[in-house]
Amino acid sequence: MVIGYGFQDNHINDLLVQAGAQRGMRMHLVNPAGLDVLRRYPTHAIQGPNPLDDIPLIGVTVRSLREAFSGDKLSQRSLLRFFE
């Protein structure tokens, strides 16, 4: 589960991509920007290949953890599914 990380550190991104490709890591992303946080360039720019797109996602939550666990049952179930 990746919570609030902005994907701006290439050495960490490389480790995440490697873990996804070689170790079968799957990721649940928790970030208010949703999948847009993975984009390296503004959304109106032409996007080049992004190795982060190859990491298997098992969920994306755009709500804060506080919101999810204080009433947003859909987000809460999505987060808890990560631990199953």
Rank of each mutant, 00 (worst) to 15 (best):
M1P: 00
V2H: 00
I3P: 00
G4T: 01
G4E: 02
G6C: 05
G6E: 08
G6W: 02
F7E: 02
F7M: 02
Q8R: 10
Q8V: 00
Q8L: 02
D9W: 01
N10Q: 11
N10E: 09
N10G: 01
H11D: 07
H11W: 04
H11S: 05
I12W: 03
I12M: 06
N13A: 02
N13F: 01
D14M: 06
L16A: 07
L16V: 10
V17Y: 00
V17P: 00
Q18W: 15
Q18F: 14
A19N: 06
G20S: 09
G20D: 07
A21L: 14
Q22I: 02
Q22R: 07
Q22V: 07
Q22H: 10
G24N: 07
R26L: 01
M27W: 02
M27C: 09
H28Q: 13
H28L: 15
L29F: 05
L29A: 10
L29W: 05
L29K: 09
V30Y: 05
N31K: 05
A33L: 11
A33D: 13
G34F: 04
D36K: 14
D36F: 07
D36E: 15
D36G: 07
L38Y: 04
L38A: 04
R40Q: 08
R40P: 00
R40Y: 03
R40N: 04
R40E: 04
P42R: 11
P42N: 09
T43N: 09
H44K: 11
H44N: 11
H44Y: 14
A45T: 12
A45Q: 15
I46S: 14
I46P: 08
G48N: 11
G48E: 14
P51Y: 02
D53Y: 08
D53W: 08
D53Q: 08
D54P: 01
D54S: 14
L57K: 13
G59N: 12
V60L: 10
V60T: 14
T61M: 07
V62Q: 15
V62S: 08
S64Q: 02
L65Q: 00
R66F: 12
R66S: 12
R66Q: 13
E67N: 09
E67D: 15
E67S: 14
E67A: 15
A68E: 05
A68R: 03
F69H: 06
F69L: 09
F69A: 06
S70K: 11
S70M: 08
S70C: 09
G71S: 13
G71I: 12
G71H: 13
D72A: 15
D72H: 15
D72C: 14
K73H: 04
L74A: 15
L74Q: 13
Q76M: 10
Q76P: 00
R77C: 00
S78E: 12
S78G: 07
L79F: 06
L79M: 10
L79K: 02
R81Q: 13
F82L: 07
F83K: 05
F83E: 04
F83S: 07
F83I: 08
E84V: 05
E84C: 07
